[in-house]
Each structure stands twice: as C-alpha cells, then as structure tokens.
C-alpha cells in the first residue's frame, strides 16, 4: 500500500509533502516515514496519508479550473494606486 508523507520541519511551520513510501498499515507507514524522511532531524511531526485517499484536481482541467481567478486582479493590493508619500497603506 502506497502512503504519502508530510513533515513539519519545525514548530510554527505547516506540514509539507516530502514523498511517498510503501507499508502494510498506518503504524508501519509512520515508522518507515521516520526512518526514510527524518534521519537527520528534518522534522518534529509526521503525517502519513493513504495515497488513494487523496482527491486531486486534474491537470487536463487545470485551465478551466483555475481560470476564474485570472481576471480578478483587484484582489491584489498592487491593483490600487496609492498617492506618493503616504505610508501605512
């Protein structure tokens, strides 16, 4: 069974995907992840998730899926003109 592994590198940061591994069950997956991805103190916390449980967006639909955000530049602060000399804006 394939598991995806996520490591929190230090307190204050979120878990980040680091790779995958094979294990028969969750307990072994966690042990294997410890041995495979944190041999040099790369993390303080580990998540393992069955790869088949992850629901992913499809690369073919990428454009249609993410396009709605494309024409909404007004969501960014750089869209707005700020008079010169003013601060805290």
């Amino acid at each position: 069974m394939l598991w995806e592994v996520f490591v929190r590198s230090k307190r204050g940061l979120s878990h980040t995907h680091v790779g995958s591994l094979h294990a028969a069950d969750a307990h072994l997956a966690l042990r294997n992840a410890r041995d495979l991805y944190t041999r040099r103190q790369e993390g303080v916390s580990l998540w393992v998730v069955p790869a088949e449980e992850i629901v992913a967006s499809s690369p073919e639909e990428k454009d249609a899926f993410f396009d709605p955000a494309g024409d909404k530049v007004y969501r960014h602060p750089t869209f707005y003109d700020v008079p010169e000399g003013l601060t805290h804006l």
Partner: peptide, 20 residues
Amino acid sequence: VAKVQDEAGHGLYLYSAAET
C-alpha cells in the same frame, strides 16, 4: 552503518519517484 542506511533510503526515494 549510517551511509549504507542512506543508500537504502536513496533507493526508496527513487522507487517512489518511478512509481509516480
């Protein structure tokens, strides 16, 4: 021992990459 264990780890990173 640490080096040989690393080699096993490298193999596993790579097998995972191939499986994608």
